[in-house]
């Protein structure tokens, strides 16, 4: 049996969670202000272990991307004082790769490309997707109908395949990669925001705004948008995780530029994984762990934010 509260359907608010101001007294001491609710949400977020671990992981990689020399003394292309394929040791903490570069240093420097591409692509996608989703969901009509079909069509092909096709045709430069990931994320975001906007549009506060003669622009941007921001934030973090996923995969497939010596986690995995069977696992497993840790870190943050907003 699952937890439920048989009294709940009778009361519009949850009597256990909130302390709504009561009807007559005008000065109920238990009434929480908006600030307090926000603060409680924030406190809950900051106290949740998932969020803390997530922030620590992501924070570490951001630091590596912004200021790699703080964390390592070598350069990414520098050969170190240990022969190639040396296992983890005091000279090279995480060992050296096939040509004698320090795996640890390459991982530190390798954070940069993924942390430039993923957030930028996500930001572009979120702005476009939120805009499209709100407009389509509020106005509906034939434009919405057509765009919905196009979205359906794009979503019918795995993002990674579509990305391969586009990057292959447009070239492998970083701006192309960023915009490709961004554009390919727009349909999924649009779909989420659109259905939320449809649900909001059916509520009476929107009807009420129409009765006041408010313009569509006002209703979408001032009335509806503030009610879907929570969803936008969750969508932002979810997509950030997928952007990391997509970029790393493209890099692994050799589709993010032409220089295979660039320090980049995906490229490093692809350059070194074949040596695993020869027991030289560190040059590929450590960057793979870096990718996994970043994804997990982002997921932990997403999950905690989602929970805090729903509470």
């Amino acid at each position: 049996m699952t937890a439920f509260d048989p009294e709940a359907p009778e009361t519009p608010h949850d009597p256990l969670d909130l302390h709504p101001a009561s009807d007559e007294d005008g000065g109920a001491p238990q009434a929480a202000t908006r600030k307090q609710v926000r603060k409680e949400q924030r406190m809950m977020l900051f106290k949740s272990p998932g969020f803390i671990i997530g922030v620590l992981i992501v924070g570490f990689w951001v630091l590596s991307a912004v200021w790699p020399s703080l964390l390592t003394t070598y350069g990414p292309d520098e050969f170190v004082d240990a022969p190639p394929r040396t296992g983890p040791s005091s000279e090279a903490w995480l060992g050296t790769d096939g040509v004698g570069r320090d795996v640890y240093t390459r991982i530190i420097y390798g954070a940069r490309p993924i942390l430039i591409v993923a957030p930028l692509a996500t930001a572009i996608a979120i702005v476009m997707g939120t805009f499209l989703g709100l407009v389509m969901g509020y106005y509906r009509g034939w434009v919405d109908e057509i765009l919905s079909r196009i979205i359906e069509a794009i979503l019918s092909i795995p993002v990674i395949l579509m990305a391969i096709l586009v990057v292959f045709t447009f070239g492998r430069s970083r701006p192309v990669v960023i915009f490709t990931i961004a554009i390919l994320f727009v349909p999924a975001i649009t779909r989420t925001i659109r259905s939320a906007a449809i649900a909001e549009s059916e509520l009476d506060y929107v009807t009420s705004a129409k009765m006041r003669g408010e313009s569509g622009v006002f209703i979408v941007s001032r009335e509806i948008l503030p009610n879907v921001t929570g969803l936008v934030v969750v969508e932002l973090t979810v997509r950030l995780g997928y952007a990391v996923f997509t970029y790393a995969t493209l890099a692994f497939l050799g589709l993010v530029g032409t220089n295979i010596t660039t320090a980049d986690w995906g490229i490093d995995v692809s350059q070194n994984y074949e040596q695993i069977v020869r027991d030289v696992w560190w040059p590929s497993i450590f960057p793979a762990m870096a990718i996994a840790s970043l994804v997990i870190g982002v997921n932990l943050i997403t999950d905690s934010i989602d929970k805090a907003l729903k509470s």
Binding site: T249, D279, A288, A292, N299, D303
Partner: peptide, 22 residues
């Protein structure tokens, strides 16, 4: 489930190579 999902498939594959296949 959450920890593993959205880890890229090839990363999972590389882990499996190292920890099971070898």
């Amino acid at each position: 489930g959450l920890a593993f999902s959205s880890i890229p498939d090839f990363v999972a594959g590389v882990f499996l190579l190292a920890f099971l296949a070898v």
